[in-house]
Amino acid sequence: MEFGLAGCDAGLAAPDAAALPALIAEAEALGIKSVWFNEEHFQRLLHTSGGRICPSPVIMAAAVAQATTTIRIGFSALLLPLHHPLRLAEEIATLDVISHGRIDFGVARGANPRYCDAYEVSVDETRARFDDNLGKILSYWQEEESTLGGGRYNVLPKPAQSPHPPIYVATYTPETGAAVARDGHRIIQSGIQADWHLELMLDAYRAAGGRVEDVPLGRFFHVAETDEQARYEAERAVRDLSERLTAIGIAQRARTVREADIEPEALYEQLAVIGGVDTCIRKLERLRERYGIRRINMQSSFFGFMPLETTMKSLRLLSRDVMPAL
Rank of each mutant, 00 (worst) to 15 (best):
E225L: 03
Y168D: 12
W36L: 05
R244A: 15
I92C: 12
G275K: 00
I73W: 01
A234P: 10
F221S: 05
V273T: 11
G50P: 06
D104H: 02
T147Y: 03
E243V: 15
V277W: 00
V180L: 04
D131S: 08
V97R: 03
M60C: 10
E289K: 13
E213C: 13
N133K: 01
A77C: 09
H83R: 14
Q270S: 14
T126G: 01
Q142E: 15
V273Y: 06
A13G: 12
V277C: 04
E143L: 06
R294M: 06
Y115C: 05
I293Y: 00
S162D: 13
F302M: 08
H164K: 09
S34M: 07
S56T: 13
A14H: 09
G292M: 02
E2S: 03
Y168G: 12
F221R: 03
L315Q: 12
G51E: 09
G209A: 05
L156A: 08
F75N: 10
R294P: 03
T69E: 15
I71G: 09
E213D: 12
I187G: 02
E265V: 13
D321C: 11
V107K: 00
I92T: 07
R255M: 12
S99C: 12
F220Y: 11
E125P: 12
L45H: 13
T279N: 08
V121L: 05
R152C: 15
R288S: 06
P159D: 07
G74R: 00
Y119R: 11
L198H: 04
Y172N: 11
L241A: 14
L267Y: 06
I73V: 03
L30C: 05
T171Y: 00
A230S: 12
E213V: 11
E228W: 13
V64M: 11
L148I: 14
Y168P: 14
H84C: 15
H83T: 12
M60R: 10
D261C: 01
A89I: 00
A93G: 04
Y205F: 07
V273M: 09
L217Y: 07
F305Q: 10
P81E: 00
P57Q: 02
G209F: 02
G31V: 01
I274P: 01
P324N: 09
W36V: 05
L217F: 02
P55D: 09
P159T: 09
R182Y: 08
L198C: 06
A6W: 00
G184R: 13
G184P: 09
V238Q: 12
V322G: 05
Y115L: 08
I274H: 06
L80Q: 01
I293Q: 03
N112T: 10
R244V: 15
R44V: 14
A29F: 00
P159L: 07
N297H: 02
A178D: 14
D96C: 06
T256L: 01
Q299P: 11
I73K: 02
I274V: 08
L12Q: 02
Q161H: 04
D117Q: 12
K33T: 09
L5Q: 03
S319T: 02
E91N: 13
A108T: 07
V322M: 05
D16T: 15
G7K: 05
E285G: 08
G276A: 01
D16G: 14
S139E: 11
S34I: 04
